[in-house]
């Protein structure tokens, strides 16, 4: 877990800058190369990447296990849907609202659970994830949430008469928000607060001795992480144009967790690998049987934990390192 450089939080070197630029270039180019359906899938990849990034911050860099981030995804999605549906707010203006709402809820949930170590947060968040669909269906808030039926929202049109269609605009908008979120995360994690988070993860007692307010920082980290996942939920709702309680079952939280572990727990690019995994592997596995995605997820999750605890990001890292050594012998 040591070596923050290797985890993608270090300074921007020339090589890494080139890698980021080329991935970004390819991502933008994809908007003009793929069909609408594939573009929709890529939009969801960006959405999941932001959601998993939230988990990366709290689990990977702060060592707190959350099994309930699907709940924050749901809260973000519903905040956006309600604001657009009931208050005719433009889609982009709903994002700050869901950020604030999710951070607030995250703070409140984290407050009791994080005072205690390890498993208690996992338990509480798991309970939160299981209870979420029920709360969303409840008749007291049915006027706002649409109950079991959920809310249908309309697809945003591209602004300024840009010569692109709605799917392309949606993808590019999501991508732009995604870039901002990744930049924010990168900035947060490589600075003083990020180091404090990692200190808590690696040695809580030592971190406390250095003057870090453990409980407060943990709770704040959890709130930030909830905010990231909540914004992802908002973007997801805009992309799917529909929210309903049953799309936010406990399995959403579990899939995000699987994406986190398979992508690489303490790694910023790992969030992208994880998102690609949870978006595309079920499509492949679905062709085998309805039950196959769950089984494939479960088996791969256990296999990764045993064989490659660094996940896909750890694998890519060791491959690039090996490649560099081959290109520059002795370097």
């Amino acid at each position: 877990m040591s070596g923050s450089n290797a985890a993608g939080t270090g300074a921007l070197t020339a090589g890494r800058g080139a890698a980021v630029a080329s991935v970004l270039g390819a991502a933008v180019a994809a908007a003009f190369l793929f069909s609408d359906y594939h573009l929709f899938q890529l939009t969801l990849v960006v959405v999941y990447a932001i959601a998993i990034l939230g988990l990366t911050i709290v689990t990977g860099f702060n060592g707190q296990i959350s099994l309930g981030h699907g709940a924050f995804y749901a809260i973000g999605a519903y905040t956006t849907a309600i604001l657009m549906d009931r208050y005719d707010m433009p889609y982009w203006a709903t994002l700050p609202f869901s950020a604030v709402v999710c951070a607030g809820v995250g703070f409140l949930i984290g407050l009791p659970a994080l005072r205690l170590g390890g498993l208690y947060l996992a338990l509480t968040t798991f309970a939160l994830a299981v209870a979420t669909p029920q709360v969303l269906k409840h008749k007291l808030i049915e006027d706002y949430t649409g109950g079991v039926q959920g809310i249908v929202i309309s697809k945003p049109d591209p602004p300024f008469d840009l010569p692109i269609d709605a799917d392309q605009w949606l993808y590019l908008f999501t991508l732009a928000v995604g870039c901002v979120m990744f930049l924010l995360a990168w900035n947060l994690l490589r600075g003083r607060i990020g180091r404090a988070m990692m200190a808590i993860r690696d040695h809580a007692v030592a971190a406390e001795a250095m003057g870090i307010d453990i409980a407060m920082l943990k709770t704040r980290t959890f709130a930030v992480s909830a905010m990231f996942t909540g914004i992802a939920g908002s973007l997801g709702a805009i992309a799917v144009q529909f929210v309903a309680p049953d799309s936010f079952s406990v399995f959403l939280s579990i899939f995000l967790f699987v994406g986190l572990v398979v992508g690489g727990v303490a790694s910023i690019p790992g969030a992208i690998y994880g998102a690609l995994f949870i978006q595309f592997v079920p499509n492949v596995a679905d062709q085998l049987s309805k039950a196959a995605p769950g089984a494939v997820y479960g088996i791969l999750l256990i296999a990764v934990l045993y064989l490659a605890p660094g996940g896909a990001a750890g694998f890519v890292r060791s491959m690039t390192r090996r490649l560099c050594r081959m290109v520059r012998p002795g370097g």
Binding site: I65, L67, G298, L301
Partner: peptide, 10 residues
């Protein structure tokens, strides 16, 4: 926790 979640899914 990861192994338990994996078992749950399986």
């Amino acid at each position: 926790v990861g192994v338990f979640i994996g078992l749950l899914l399986i």
